[in-house]
């Protein structure tokens, strides 16, 4: 068990150090996220009044688009440099690779969110710094990344890999998106917790089911 966790940590560490050298993935996700917010600003004419009800939707759309970029890139790099084959040769359980990559992707997505949230809150005076809201952000990102990492590993092996990931990922992650938007909207509008808890439960259920399912089938995705 200990060596299993160490192996996962090694995969995450590898991703983080590689990213630290170039910072290309993170900066791309970040700039992209800010651009999406800019576009929403004009497309929806977000002003201080309108954003009350729209903020949750805008934020999640931003996270999801930025997340897709990050996911695709994180696994495409492995494939192109032949690192995936190297990882597969390592004498560890295949699920180590899945969890390592998924947690690495989750860290990148959370980092982007940590930067985007204060910017958004500064621009529109939205009270995002509440424990409940931040919990929703984490739970939503876990579900999205759990499915996204698995699908991205499939997509990078396909001929049409540049366009396939969002098409496969968006419809499958709709429950997460709906629940995350409704729950974070609830926290932003100061709705009592009893009305939000159903959405939180749904998020947790989705996270558990899909992480477990992805863990079980990951072997088949990287099989040669």
């Amino acid at each position: 068990m200990k060596s299993y966790l160490n192996a996962i940590r090694a995969v995450i560490w590898k991703d983080l150090t590689a990213e630290w050298r170039t910072r290309e993935n993170l900066s791309a996700m970040l700039v992209f996220a800010l651009l999406v917010i800019l576009i929403f600003n004009f497309a929806l004419e977000l002003d201080i009044q309108a954003q009350e009800s729209l903020s949750a939707g805008v934020l999640w759309a931003t996270f999801i688009f930025a997340g897709t970029i990050g996911l695709n890139r994180s696994l495409a790099v492995e494939k192109d440099r032949g690192c995936l084959d190297g990882l597969l040769l390592a004498p560890v359980d295949r699920s180590v690779i899945y969890f390592g990559k998924a947690i690495g992707n989750l860290i990148f997505m959370l980092l982007v969110e940590i930067i985007v949230l204060p910017v958004y809150s500064f621009l529109y005076q939205v009270p995002v710094f509440q424990p409940g809201f931040l919990l929703v952000v984490v739970l939503g990102s876990i579900g999205y990344v759990a499915v996204g990492t698995l699908l991205a590993t499939m997509v990078i092996q396909a001929r049409t890999r540049d366009i396939l990931l969002p098409i496969l990922l968006f419809p499958l992650s709709l429950p997460v998106i709906i629940a995350a938007v409704k729950a974070s909207q609830g926290f932003l509008l100061m709705v009592p917790l009893t009305e939000i808890s159903a959405w939180l439960n749904l998020l947790i259920v989705y996270d558990l089911i899909f992480t477990a399912a992805a863990f079980m089938v990951f072997d088949f995705v990287v099989e040669e």
């Binding site: 499915v147 698995l150 699908l151 499939m154 092996q157 396909a158 496969l168 419809p171 499958l172 992650s173 709709l174 429950p175 709906i178 629940a179 409704k182 159903a198 959405w199 749904l202 259920v205 989705y206 089911i209 899909f210 399912a213 089938v217 088949f220 995705v221 099989e223």
Partner: peptide, 24 residues
């Protein structure tokens, strides 16, 4: 292999989608 996995995942996600929209 890929389409088998996607069919299974799709089938899992449909009830959750339905529940989440129903809650609306």
């Amino acid at each position: 292999r890929f389409s088998a996995i996607y069919a299974i995942f799709g089938f899992f996600s449909v009830p959750l989608t339905f529940i989440s929209i129903r809650m609306l």
